[in-house]
Amino acid sequence: MKNAAALSEQLPVTGPVAGGGSSRRARPAEPEPAVSTDLSTRDRVTQLLLERGATTAAQLGALLGLSSAAIRRHLDAMLADGDVVAREQTVRGSRGRGRPAKVFTLTEAARVRCGTHHYDNIATAALRWIARTGGAHAVESFAAEQVSALEERCRAAMEDAGDEPLARAEALAGALTAEGYAANASTIASGGQLCQHHCPVAHVAAEFPQLCEAETAVISRLVGTHVQRLATIAHGDGVCTTHIPAQPRAQSGNTVTTVRTDR
């Protein structure tokens, strides 16, 4: 009873209850449930990393309108959960003072949770069966057949792109993005570069590179020139990168200078 009395003295009381003169103890106020935007923001970070590949915290913050502290809080949580990995940004040429910025990419587990690899197990099993019964050539034929429909759709979307390879690469990037590949094209010193930040068949292609080879052949036919695959998501890279070499320019006297791209 003493303890109860002591507790009663410590608790605050309210004013008179309506309809009576007695007072009652006030219950401790329960905190209002916080309306958090963490989940939606994290989803947006995941989507940006899926579309853009390796990206710095500063770039993500600028795209999302978040402060450096806020974006790092999300990235730290995603690092702890195994959804992203961080590495130092590759800097070409002379580098200023300080350490290079870190770039963040999605882990394979995070890609899977994005729903990017539906039916991988059955697709892989089917290709294994094709390889056992028909050999490597049958797998190559299957891969070529699989990308033929994609090629036709992209060719139709590129109808007004003209003949210049880099212009066609830009049009192809738009067509591939519409197909779910999150692609973009850019001009570099040695020509052009087509990047695909998402691969719907990455898990399967890791075991059967014929899928990547068939897709590379499609890219070459669509841009109208030889291309070289430099990196693929299927082989553990953050992005599928295809190099489009600069076209030889006619010189005086109608001579042509060619550039070797096969070494």
Rank of each mutant, 00 (worst) to 15 (best):
T232F: 07
L230Y: 00
S186F: 03
A183V: 04
L230C: 05
A217E: 02
P209M: 10
S220L: 04
G238M: 04
V201T: 14
L222N: 09
A231G: 04
N184A: 11
I233S: 03
V218F: 01
V256K: 10
E207C: 06
G192M: 11
Q193K: 03
L222A: 11
I219G: 01
S190C: 00
Q228F: 13
P209R: 13
A183L: 05
G238W: 03
A234M: 15
T216I: 13
L230E: 08
A206P: 02
F208R: 09
R249S: 14
A250K: 04
Q210S: 13
E207A: 13
T258Y: 08
V256S: 12
A182W: 03
V259R: 00
N184Y: 14
E207F: 05
A214K: 03
H226L: 11
A183C: 09
V204I: 11
T255R: 14
Y181D: 00
Y181I: 02
R249W: 00
C199M: 10
G192T: 05
V256T: 14
I233V: 11
V223C: 08
Q196M: 15
T225N: 06
Q196K: 12
P248T: 05
L230V: 04
R229L: 13
N254K: 05
I244D: 10
V227I: 07
H226E: 13
L222M: 05
V239P: 13
R221D: 03
T187H: 07
A185G: 12
H243M: 11
T257W: 00
C199T: 07
I244K: 04
T257Y: 00
S220A: 15
V204Q: 12
E215P: 04
L222W: 01
